[in-house]
Design a protein around this nucleic acid. Sequence first.
DNA 1: AAGCGAGCCGTTACCGCTAACATCGATCAT
DNA 2: ATGATCGATGTTAGCGGTAACGGCTCGCTT
Lengths: 366, 366
Amino acid sequence: MSKPSRRSRGTITIEDVARAAGVSAMTVSRVINGGKNVRETTRTAVLEAVEKLNYSPNTAARSLAAGEATHIGLLYANPSAAYLSQFLIGALEAARRAGCHLVIESCESEDPDEQAEATRRFATSDVEGVILPPPLSDSVPIMAELGSIGIPVVTVAMGLPQEGGLNVRIDDREAAAEMTRYLLSLGHRNIGFIKGHPNHIASHDRTRGFHDALEEFGLDPGAAPVEQGYFTYRSGLSASERLLSRPNPPSAIFASNDDMAAAAISVAHRRGLHVPADLSIVGFDDTSLATTVWPELTTVKQPIAAMAEAALDLLLGDLRSRRSGSPHGGNVRALEHALIVRESSGPPAKASKRARVPARATKAGA
Amino acid sequence: MSKPSRRSRGTITIEDVARAAGVSAMTVSRVINGGKNVRETTRTAVLEAVEKLNYSPNTAARSLAAGEATHIGLLYANPSAAYLSQFLIGALEAARRAGCHLVIESCESEDPDEQAEATRRFATSDVEGVILPPPLSDSVPIMAELGSIGIPVVTVAMGLPQEGGLNVRIDDREAAAEMTRYLLSLGHRNIGFIKGHPNHIASHDRTRGFHDALEEFGLDPGAAPVEQGYFTYRSGLSASERLLSRPNPPSAIFASNDDMAAAAISVAHRRGLHVPADLSIVGFDDTSLATTVWPELTTVKQPIAAMAEAALDLLLGDLRSRRSGSPHGGNVRALEHALIVRESSGPPAKASKRARVPARATKAGA
DNA sequence: AAGCGAGCCGTTACCGCTAACATCGATCAT
DNA sequence: ATGATCGATGTTAGCGGTAACGGCTCGCTT
């Protein structure tokens, strides 16, 4: 009488929920999704049934029926491994929730042609949107190629989002300023700064944030010891080497990312300097490298996984609105960063007595 | 007349292929999957049509219809980030091909109760199988919990696979022996070894491989300088500190993983030793840390992504055979490793003239 | 009081694919 | 020879959802 159901998986379906709530499957579907045009009492009844049965919709069935995006591309290029794994975890979680698959491609080359080539690989597989984490989010050739193929993109932690483009980011400038203020409040007045790769706009934002804080404390940004780095460990090695070889070496080093900060620690140790007693070193990103090295790094934490989730959600939302022909709304999302104080930073050697005193105007502390 | 098809996605379906090949959809399905009972000529015809139309099956529809596993758990615990990202990339690729979703959970704690708790989280979500990369693949409580819930598991790089268990691995012992032979052939006779975490069987395998090679060269493994490490950077720091403080310090250090090898490089630099001129240092795993540090590490490369893919395939195959009630066949797969020679290793200082001479019997080289 | 649009909910028809069963000709044991 | 068997294929019926549309019930206009 009921249904002998050819092959009955033990799973509970929307039908079960509908029965339990005394409504039709369609109503359950409505409640679970948009939820328009459903009476409040009905909604709660359905929700209760969902709760009681511990129902979770079958994503395969859902995307099949709705014809939703099923494949989202993710093109990466050698960010730090720690960044990538965090990012993947976040993206994966969001993808699972949405019931879509991630198609991963890597593109290590800086050559525009190869980047375009890697991009085109997405076109042949049936990817419907692409996520671009740094550093590729700043790649002009890739964006151009994607644009000409007509695949929507969401960039992450990118410098200058183009008009109408989807973007997820943190406020690099403010974060760098906060870190600098922290160092200043510890008593440091001669802070060395290692810049990031000049091709990434985030590098400039961080540098500007550094300058901002210096100015707030009445210091001259132009006089601060600054060296160029390229986000790599090796570039951090030589940059800190140069910083510490200066006639008046800084009492703290602020590296634009953790890799370079870790390199700075290595150089300090090689020179017999104790961290943080003789030299404070701070980074940016809070990758796992930050807690791998000793002493552990004071750094700025980006909510990497959350950014990946936000990126995917943004992209999926855009795809949906395109499908239904409605105008795409807000498309830039900025998430919160956080200052993580660990062991690699402390008051400067000579100033250890008066630590913690903000001392707001010690001009020319150098 | 034909079919105005309510909502026609532009995608090509199995039906299109069937039409093009002049067969039914079912036959196409058979060709694409198992492919049993299909005439050779038919098969090629279908394959050609697939090729011509550039058809790729809709995974959502597939897993919906076949009632296949859709959610596979992946429980990880703080391996190096580089390992994790590689592993995720491999697992993701395999998951996409299979049309299933990865459910990621982390479990940083070593506490058995918390591990069991993390495991149980899979039970509530509808995960049908779990992948356990190291170091959790050696966790007894997790395996026990999974066993009692009745979820199939595949362990990766685990020490002692239990009978009937699914396992993917490399030959740690042979790999360690190869690395040691390489060092010996370079002329090193006093090689320091940093062991891995004693809870991981792989640690013992690597140690044994080290011993194997020593014996092959007529050296006494018992006399070799060996220190205990725990796979962490910090443990590598103190282990190499101890190694180099010995009255007769080794001319080469073989660390059981890259993190500890990187730590050894740091210690060497701190002591003013040049790598590899004064001291050769080699690692194991070829994580991205290996190429991050300077000089870049000579190490053993595990095909991490491939191992993840193999693990997922193995698990899916097992799940499928369980469903059809057939006996599960072979269940351990060993993949190939490779010795990667980079800049951190070279002939010993005093022996630089006679480098490259295998010198097979220099007993008591210490 | 009849008209009427809006809100709420159910029905129908699929999405793309595959398990199970049906079909049909060819090979096979007796 | 001849039904039994087997291999190669087609047919049917869903898997679990959702889009589209249709119907019913109100409340409010005129």
